[in-house]
């Protein structure tokens, strides 16, 4: 059909459904960024699928003019696995949140990542339950007071990046809802990666957890609080005159002050390498948390591993090569049979 050849624009990806997030919700900017990146990917619109679970973020597929499936709570990775295995040509996008992905759906998130299904997982992390009206989530800070934790949450929070690394993720990144150019970059890279691309998107929920990522979202403080990762570049942040760098001593990170004239590399600042085979470096980055450290944003890790669906296709192919295409007549008559006349 002509659709593939036509030059698509952002508007081609806007579905007719009214968007029903609260005013000021970070989800709006994420949606806009995704819709903006889509036409650049060179994928025919009919091959793009968005699959989500349940929660505010999971309304996402309704707003994308692609194929979409709003499923059940926490299980989007499993639905996506079936669809992708059935049709490996699909560009598969999973949209989830900190509750959907890391609480009820933790098991499926683990397994889709370890299998390295070729897909993009966008985990909107607002550190609270939105749709059920404000209970603490698995990424909420300890002590957070909500309706279900009037004396403060006593759960230790989970870090999505560390979780993904622990599952053996081949692509791990972090973006900020309102930082459009950066997030679009990350989305493009995620799409280009063959395998599971896990992206934690820091997202503001102005209704139930306003300002959870305030200093990273605010342009005035972002330079001091976000560590923008670039492959082959030193881990530096701050603004001119107040530059800082990250050094690792036996794997333990610390901050050094840099003079403008300093060569950060000579000063021992770590040069970012996405492609480390071992995950220890990526873990070290994942431990950088506010307020002691800046939070890394960008691509933390990107390595190559065979994808699940391609290995399954290979096995089917191998079975056909070895045994010939299936013959039902032969199957039903295999083994011991006997004639009755």
């Amino acid at each position: 059909m002509a659709a593939a050849a036509e030059k698509l624009t952002r508007r081609d990806f806007v579905s007719g459904q009214d968007v029903r997030w609260c005013p000021g919700c970070g989800d709006y900017s994420i949606l806009a960024n995704v819709q903006r990146v889509m036409p650049e990917l060179g994928v025919p619109r009919e091959n793009i699928v968005f699959i989500s679970g349940i929660g505010c973020s999971s309304r996402f597929p309704y707003y994308m003019n692609t194929y979409g499936f709003h499923t059940i709570h926490g299980r989007a990775p499993a639905f996506a696995t079936g669809a992708k295995v059935a049709n490996p040509d699909l560009s598969m996008w999973i949209v989830t949140g900190d509750g959907d992905g890391l609480s009820i759906g933790g098991n499926h998130l683990l397994h889709v990542i370890r299998r390295n299904l070729d897909c993009q997982i966008l985990l909107f992390n607002n550190r609270v339950y939105g749709l059920t009206k404000g209970q603490y989530s698995p990424t909420s800070e300890r002590g957070m007071r909500t309706k279900s934790s009037p004396q403060g949450a006593i759960d230790h929070p989970i870090d999505p990046i560390s979780f993904a690394l622990g599952c053996g993720a081949t692509f791990v990144a972090r973006g900020i809802d309102v930082d459009a150019p950066h997030m679009q970059d990350v989305l493009r890279r995620a799409h280009a990666h063959k395998g599971t691309s896990f992206i934690e998107i820091l997202q503001n929920c102005p209704v139930f957890n306003d300002g959870a990522w305030g200093e990273l979202e605010d342009r005035k403080t972002r330079a001091e609080t976000a560590l923008v990762l670039e492959h082959g570049k030193p881990l530096v942040y701050g603004s001119p005159g107040r530059m800082k760098g990250i050094v690792l001593d036996q794997g333990v990170p610390s901050i050094i002050e840099l003079a403008d004239a300093d060569d950060p590399v000579e000063r021992g600042v770590v040069v970012h390498d996405e492609t480390h085979e071992t995950t220890s470096y990526a873990y070290a980055l994942a431990t950088l948390k506010r307020p002691e450290f800046p939070m890394p944003v960008g691509i933390i890790r990107q390595v190559e591993k065979p994808t699940y669906e391609s290995m399954l296709e290979d096995q089917v192919e191998e079975a056909i090569q070895k045994r010939g295409p299936g013959d039902l007549e032969a199957l039903l008559n295999s083994g011991d049979t006997w004639q009755v006349s």
Binding site: V49, I51, F69, T71, I72, R75, P77, A78, F79, A80, T81, G82, A83, K84, V85, A86, N87, L90, N107, H108, L110, H111, L312, V316, A319, I320, K322, R323, G324, P325, G326, L328
Partner: peptide
């Protein structure tokens, strides 16, 4: 060799969910 794809899921819920995903596709 019949082109059948089998998927050993992580649990029963994923088995059912992935099946619905495959039907969708």
């Amino acid at each position: 060799n019949f082109g059948v794809k089998t998927f050993q899921a992580e649990d029963e819920i994923a088995a059912a969910s992935s099946t619905i995903g495959a039907a969708f596709a």
